[in-house]
């Protein structure tokens, strides 16, 4: 019974991990760009949430997500428009990759400068500790809400990409960034919106993860690593694969911790390594 509870909790944690990966997967799918700074932007969103919670203690911390997500969208839009679009057309794919790497280092050190290196966390009070009993299992309310939110966000994103004209333009730009111009679409503008969306999704993941575990300005790398593993494990380019990858990773982490309390993320990484050897295309092989 205890093991089942561990696996269920792992699956719930996986919803959160899926959220960390989805923003990264979106940007990679549309622009073929790996945004190394994705983790730092997630941590930045968590800092913003902590500041807002401090400024408005009477507001429930979860409502802080709304301004944080809007701000993250704006930051993503500007990040792409001002910095990334300068190299988006470079024939050498290394140039944009190195640029995002540089941005991640700059952001990390700026955060140390501004917020200090102290460990921070986001307290939700009662909600953090609340749990319900389901089929004899004790399930945390917050992890359950996180998984529900992740599934809803995945559905929403899927709908937006498949059913709206914005989504159609994004997919067409991903297919052929030159040819969309013949129909009046400016690819750079599409990229701005996609990066905004990616960082907005990352911000949700970053804030919810800050509720679960504390963070410092250096936490971006761990978050990026999880996001990477989620995306690769699920199958690059597959959104539902990312959610599935997150769930598998979350289960491996909690099962590993139960077995060996000092393991941290070791067993999640080991599972990722083994999966990479036996199924390099990912759990859900991409259609392309």
């Amino acid at each position: 019974m205890a093991w089942i509870e561990t696996l269920v909790n792992g699956a719930l944690l996986g919803g959160l991990y899926g959220l960390l990966g989805i923003g990264l997967a979106l940007v990679f799918g549309v622009m073929r760009l790996v945004n190394i700074a994705h983790g730092e932007f997630m941590v930045l969103a968590a800092y913003l949430a902590v500041i807002l919670v401090g400024l408005f203690p009477q507001v429930h911390p979860l409502f802080v997500l709304i301004p944080v997500v809007i701000a993250a969208f704006g930051v993503g839009y500007l990040y792409q428009a001002v910095i990334m679009n300068r190299v988006a057309r470079a024939p050498d794919p290394l140039a944009p990759l190195l640029l995002t790497f540089g941005v991640s280092i700059v952001l990390r050190n700026l955060m140390v400068e501004v917020f200090g290196a102290d460990v921070r966390g986001l307290q939700l009070g009662e909600l953090s500790r609340a749990s319900i009993r389901l089929f004899g299992l004790s399930i945390g309310v917050m992890p359950l809400l996180t998984l529900v939110a992740a599934v809803l966000l995945f559905l929403l994103l899927q709908w937006a990409l498949k059913r709206t004209s914005f989504g159609r333009i994004v997919r067409a730009t991903a297919d052929r960034r030159d040819i969309v111009r013949l129909f009046g679409v400016k690819p750079d503008l599409v990229y701005n919106y996609v990066m905004g969306l990616s960082l907005a999704l990352g911000a949700i993941g970053g804030v919810l993860l800050a509720v679960r575990s504390s963070f410092t300005p250096f936490s971006g790398v761990e978050r990026l690593l999880i996001a990477f593993e989620v995306v690769v494990l699920g199958g690059i380019g597959s959104f539902w694969g990312a959610l599935l990858g997150g769930i598998v990773l979350g289960m491996a982490q909690l099962a590993g911790l139960k077995w060996d309390a000092n393991a941290g993320l070791l067993y999640a990484h080991l599972l990722f390594f083994v999966m990479l050897l036996i199924r390099p295309a990912g759990l859900v092989a991409s259609r392309a």
Binding site: R168, R171, A172, A174, D175, I179, V180, F183, G184, A288
Partner: peptide, 25 residues
């Protein structure tokens, strides 16, 4: 307008969605 050499359709879009891309202008 142009019909480019090699057709250059949007591979992951359906026929109808490809046509609708013309309306973006």
């Amino acid at each position: 307008g142009m019909v480019p050499e090699g057709r250059m359709l949007f591979d992951t879009l359906s026929v109808e969605e490809n046509l609708l891309m013309g309306q973006v202008s």
